[in-house]
């Protein structure tokens, strides 16, 4: 039994799949962290990822280039985020409710647009990302095939996570974002443009969510399917809290979820008697336990969820 376990899970393929599945979670977490550090909860992440998935697929469909598709996906996510920013920053609407409304609307909108453009039965396969081993690095034993023989979107993820960490904690702009999320009034009084910074944070989050969404349509299934992000936007919300609003820690937590997803798929494919349902439920149980265990030990941005209205 133990040796079968090792054969199934301690393989390069398994770890490589874990990294692949972690990619959209890690990218979207980075985005959500920027937004929440700026004081705006973005429950609409799921919708933004879905918009990214459709945008990516359509961009690639018309240009035959997954890279152009990726850009379109990023823009589509940003567009949905702009609506959220308008609702919660300009109109000071409830952030959670606005996000929930966007999720519902975008789920319908993406399917509507897809059907209206391609019809009920068509499901075109588009140009997508292929695995591209990084020269030299991919030949490192064990690590190489796992980390550096992936589709380019995974490498983009490495860069995004590193960049977001640096920008958020090491630049003036990042500190500005953090201050409007901690104490908008104080930030305002020292001359920071609270609304402008919050707009930027939310839209940047939308860009990254859109990027995460392209993984599904350009890196996994090569087409668009209704609701194909499958609730991962919600997992990201938990990932962010468990990671205590740190992008690098979020990437590690995302890896854990990627591994859980890989376990689930493996069990489902092998059909060795362990119900795959348990494997698929496992990430959520794990999150709940970790989240409960961390109670009171994480520190969320002070003004998270609160609208800022100037006097």
């Amino acid at each position: 039994m133990l040796s079968t376990f090792a054969d199934i899970f301690l393989t390069v393929e398994f770890f490589s799949a874990s990294v692949r599945f972690a990619m959209p979670l890690a990218v979207a977490s980075s985005g959500e962290i920027i937004s929440e550090r700026g004081g705006i909860v973005n429950i609409g992440l799921e919708g933004m990822m879905l918009a990214g998935a459709l945008g990516g697929m359509m961009g690639s469909f018309y240009t035959n280039s997954p890279w152009v598709g990726m850009l379109c996906g990023i823009l589509a996510g940003g567009l949905v985020a702009a609506i959220h920013a308008f609702m919660v920053v300009t109109l000071a609407a409830d952030q959670v409710v606005s996000g929930a409304a966007l999720n519902i609307g975008v789920l319908g909108m993406t399917t509507f647009v897809f059907r209206a453009v391609y019809g009920i039965t068509e499901r075109p396969i588009v140009a997508h990302f292929e695995a591209w081993p990084v020269p030299v690095l991919s030949r490192i034993p064990f690590i190489g095939p796992i980390l550096f023989s992936q589709i380019p979107l995974v490498y983009v993820t490495y860069v995004v996570v590193a960049l977001v960490s640096v920008v958020l904690f090491r630049t003036m702009w990042g500190l500005g974002i953090q201050s409007v999320g901690e104490h908008p009034r104080a930030a305002d009084s020292v001359g920071l443009h609270v609304d402008r910074l919050r707009y930027m944070a939310v839209i940047l989050c939308g860009f990254l969510a859109g990027l995460a969404g392209t993984f599904f349509s350009l890196g996994q299934l090569y087409t668009f399917i209704e609701g194909m992000t499958g609730g991962r936007g919600f997992i990201v919300l938990a990932v962010v809290i468990v990671a205590n609003w740190s992008p690098t820690r979020a990437a590690l937590v995302a890896l854990l979820f990627g591994a859980a997803e890989a376990v689930g798929l493996r069990l489902q494919a092998l059909d060795i008697g362990i119900p795959y349902h348990f494997a698929l439920a496992f990430p959520y149980v794990l999150t709940l336990i970790v989240y409960a265990g961390l109670a009171g030990r994480t520190r969320m941005p002070h003004a998270l969820g609160l609208p800022y209205v100037k006097d």
Binding site: A101, I104, G105, T111
Partner: peptide
């Protein structure tokens, strides 16, 4: 049929 969901989301917004 998804026009129902779209309408629902827009009304909510």
């Amino acid at each position: 049929q998804e026009i129902a969901l779209v309408t629902q989301g827009i009304i909510l917004l």
